[in-house]
Each structure stands twice: as C-alpha cells, then as structure tokens.
Amino acid sequence: MDLVMYKNDVWGREVILGVSWELLWVVVVAAFVVIAAHAIIVGNRKQAPRPSSEGKHIERHDGKDRIFHWVMAASVMVLLVTGIFPIIGIEFSWLTLHWVAGLVLTASVVFHIVRSLFWQDLASMNIRPSDLKETFSTAKKPGKYSIEQKGMHAAVTVLVLLVIGSGLVMFAMIDTPWWERTNSLSEATLGWVFLIHGLSTLALIAAISLHIYFSLRPEKLFYTRSMIKGWISEEELKAHHDPDKWPKDSA
C-alpha cells in the first residue's frame, strides 16, 4: 500500500499527486481498534462513583466559546462528508458545499484565535512537564483542562491550521464568485498542497473519532454537557479537577 500517489506532469516528470486514499481505511480501522480496546479495558475496570451534577454550577465554557465549538464541529463534519464521500464512491455535487464549509471553519478559527489571544487565558492550554504527573497519579488533578484535553486541543490546532492553509491554496485554484482560477502553481507544488490537505484530513478523522468517542463515554458526559450548557457541578469539579488551579486557569 502506498502512502503517497504520484503522477507524471505535463513534462513527463514524476510529481506528487496527493495522499493515497487507501490510507483512509487504515485510519478508520486503526481508530476503531483503539476505541474498541479502550472500551474493553475501561469496561473491565471497577468504575468510580460518578459525582452528582446537582448543586452549585461552575462555569466551564462561555456562550461564545460554545457557539464557536459547535460551529466548528458542524463545519468540520460538512467538510468531511463533502470531501470523503465522493472518494468512497458516493457521488454528489460537493465542491461548493465544501468550500463554503471551509470558509465557515476558517472564520470560526480566526475568531477563536483572536479571542484566545486577547480575551482568554491562552496559557491554560499550554502543555507543561508538570502536567505529565496527572497521567501517573490519581492524587494529582488538573486545572481547567486535563493533559488529554490539552493534547487533543494541540493536535486539532495543528491539523486544522494545516487543513485550512492547504485548503485556502486549493480554494485559489478553483472558480469562485470572487475570482476565476489561475492554475498558477506548478504541478509539483500543487501535489504537495494536496498531500498536506489529504494527510491532515486523515489525521483529523482519527482525532475526531477519538474526540467523539470520549465525549460520549459515560464518565466524560459531563464535559459534553458543559459544552452545551456551559457548566459543571461543584462535585464534578472537585472529583476531576483541582479547584485551587481552576480560577487561575479559567478564562
């Protein structure tokens, strides 16, 4: 199985065409295996009692951030469906939907970057060496975000920026209401752009599969609720986070 597809350009030179979409099935199977293995291992463990959601509400996500999250989620889903379905043989007129969703994603990410730089505590997402201790000790609790959440955020940040960057270059290569395409990139450069877009898409599929799985696990459902309603309970805070670190890390 190839990782990269090649083609001959108009001069007969071998250049990159893009990612080999056979990798899609590898990613899907690998994500399924990881999820299944995790579900089996955790299912065989004795479950700790779940903290009550009653009582005082502690704000975890501001309304603006929740809107951003769900707009981003919706646009990514539309992008994946419109990008991947035609590749697996489900044909429809996908291109306009794809770039419109791409622009929505780009706008929402720009909004989030500006907001996180000037109105939020960006440092709360930094991964520090001390965070690693959380992994090995149940006594050591995180601040607002666990190391797993910070890791997922970092991975998604890199992948989304790569997919947006490469997507914008590809966007310039098609006709839109604002410009006519130029076809100005060399075939070799275009191949690299397609490769980056394809690889980051595949990695995003894996990351999003894990994200959705964890967001639906019973012991993590309170995080999902907080992304809908904005709050967690005081008991949930004490059970999963270090209240002393919370205000410091909180936006």
Partner: peptide, 18 residues
Amino acid sequence: LACYRAGGNICYADSPQG
C-alpha cells in the same frame, strides 16, 4: 495526462496557456 477527469488535481485546458 493526469488531469482532474483522469483522477488528478489540475485542468490543463483551463490554464493560462491551455
């Protein structure tokens, strides 16, 4: 040529010199 219709990532006909 590996154009869009052949599964590629470019249209040679709709290029400045096409």
